[in-house]
Nucleic acid binder design. Structure first.
Lengths: 338, 338
DNA sequence: GCCAAAAATGAAAACATTTGCAAAACTATT
DNA sequence: AATAGTTTTGCAAATGTTTTCATTTTTGGC
């Protein structure tokens, strides 16, 4: 292991050509004679040479990486989004530099900086809510950036996502229309999470327009986890006065609610209506199958990937993102009030 | 946006020192006078200068990235693992370069190569099953590498994971002990997936040692999805002759099975026993709560992170990995045969 | 105020590449 | 066999840093 790694000069020597020719043979193969190329390839193989992207990057050549910063990887929905985004981006020859900030926006700034040190060709962030520092940094370095997951016309950078407010409205409307008047809500904390905040606003506005309101102690806040939601909902329905509908901020929370209800022998949707948001893998096949709003992570991921790559390669005009509309899916966990 | 980005020379000029001093002020701050440092920092801020890691890497300085290649991000269990691994690695100042190969091992090789071009400081792969090319490449470049998720004494590289064969045995044993003799299995395809293969072997061996065997047409193979498993199991139990136990290759498949059973009005565990493997988020809180084998993704991720970083920084002896034992969790979906 | 030692700084070489330009080697044409 | 193109190659400069070594500046003791 002592013989240091082969560099382009070693390859050149071995193939009896100059380093320039070796370099060309990689980057503009059409400019070098086939025979020479063959000789070089052989040398490369023999020495186990691997190109050094860092040394290319220095010449202003794109490194082929895109930074992706998420709050966490470990949520069904982000996992799906990351998968789709990274896969599409890989198909276009880029690789993802991934980091998570755990819903701490200052961390996000630090991570973004670090990714810029790596000279990523572009950046992708989740949601529209970011610190001014982060926005400033990205703009000042004018790094192509796309905002994932949430869409707004007024977003300060191109974004690809759904309208989370509308998603909330769709669900709120649906529940109200079914005649429910005693409605509870189970949502994740909304601070630093524009998606959750907007969904909740949407729900509230939809209800308000029908003269409805969620009682203060029926506004449950829980972390993103089946177990937390299950506990909160179990507690909620242990009181004599019960809501007839529980609107959940996302499908995972809805699953938790469903389990809690099953455990207590409350039937869905006869006794209580449950709704989610997201349409995660598994929601359709849940028994009973979950009424929710589809926010197509897959589509968002692939459109975003296309957009960021477009921004990178023809660093042209800031195309303005794309709205992927949410869609109400009425399934079996929602029904008219008794 | 025309003024090109600031480099270290620009900063040096602005701070009226030499580039060397600026460099030192970043890398060995104790060697430069506090006043000078202050001046430099001011210039950095004023010019919006961001260091260029690529230019450092060229000097053999570590870039601070670790390549992680997974089959897919979009499985509950990998998401959990990735989250834990990346978080721990970040805490130690590294960033993850992530890519997925979709269970195609040739893709894995190509990706590994590309990551090496980026001069990652270390690599992490899922499972023990990789192409000879991949192993050869990593060894030849002697890149610190750790294998995640599965553990074996004979692994060709340090690995941190659980014993998937043992996990299978634990479950097989448990089911056999409950007196079941008509047993079905629902597993993902085992080709290119050593984890699944070993689990299944473990199950089969455990049953064989009790003189039991899974009938050919009760060996269901399904992709990793609630919906696929649900369909297969629904079909399975539509026949008059039914198994009394269904052993699933992972928790997601078990959820699918559970939903199928619920839908058909078959009670668990009275009529049929269901087991999973993995203990994913949500399995404990499922109703009925799922009997499974815990494979602690979180622990694995953090131990692996520590190991790879150790290998990188004191590129010393190949510490030999770590076995995180699987643990049988008997919950409410398994019971004695009627 | 002087001197030696210590601290701070700068000049230049090094790192692994790419690229513009010029030279060399071929091809075809006569 | 000479000429004019054309294709292929090499030279040398450039890229943004770090680092070694030498030089300059500062400090403390007298």
């Amino acid at each position: 292991m002592k013989e240091k790694k082969a560099d382009i000069i070693a390859v050149a020597k071995a193939a009896r050509v100059s380093p320039s020719t070796v370099s060309r043979s990689f980057n503009h193969p059409e400019l070098v004679k086939a025979a020479t190329r063959k000789r070089i390839d052989a040398a490369v193989r023999r020495l186990g040479y691997i190109r050094n992207r860092a040394a290319q990057t220095i010449h202003g050549i794109r490194g082929g990486t895109i930074g992706l910063i998420v709050p966490t990887v470990d949520h069904a929905i982000f996992a799906e989004l990351i998968q789709s985004f990274s896969q599409n981006v890989e198909e276009q020859g880029f690789t993802i530099l991934l980091a998570s900030h755990g819903y701490r926006l200052e961390r996000e700034y630090a991570i973004a900086r670090k990714m810029l040190e790596h000279r990523v060709d572009g950046m992708a962030l989740i949601g529209l809510d970011h610190s001014d520092d982060t926005y400033g940094l990205l703009r000042q370095q004018n790094t192509p950036t796309v905002l994932l997951w949430n869409y707004s016309d007024e977003a300060p950078m191109p974004c690809v996502g759904s309208d989370n407010y509308l998603a909330g409205r769709l669900i709120g409307d649906h529940v109200a229309r079914l005649g429910h008047r005693s409605i509870a809500a189970v949502f994740p904390p909304t601070s630093g999470n524009d998606r959750a905040f907007q969904r909740l606003s949407g729900v509230e506005d939809a209800l308000a327009s029908k003269g409805l309101k969620i009682a203060r102690d029926w506004r449950l806040e829980t972390p993103y986890s089946v177990s937390a939601a299950k506990n909160k909902v179990a507690r909620l329905i242990s009181f004599p006065r019960r809501p007839t509908a529980i609107i959940c901020g996302n499908d995972v929370l809805a699953w938790g609610a469903l389990h809690a209800l099953k455990r207590s022998g409350v039937s869905v949707p006869e006794d209580v209506t449950i709704t989610g948001i997201g349409d995660f893998h598994g929601s359709k096949d849940f028994e009973p199958s979950l009424t929710t709003v589809r926010i197509p992570a897959h589509t968002i991921g692939s459109k975003a990937a296309k957009l960021i790559v477009a921004l990178i390669i023809k660093e042209s005009d800031s195309e303005s993102g794309e709205l992927v509309p949410p869609e109400l899916l009425v399934r079996s966990t929602s029904g008219p009030v008794r």
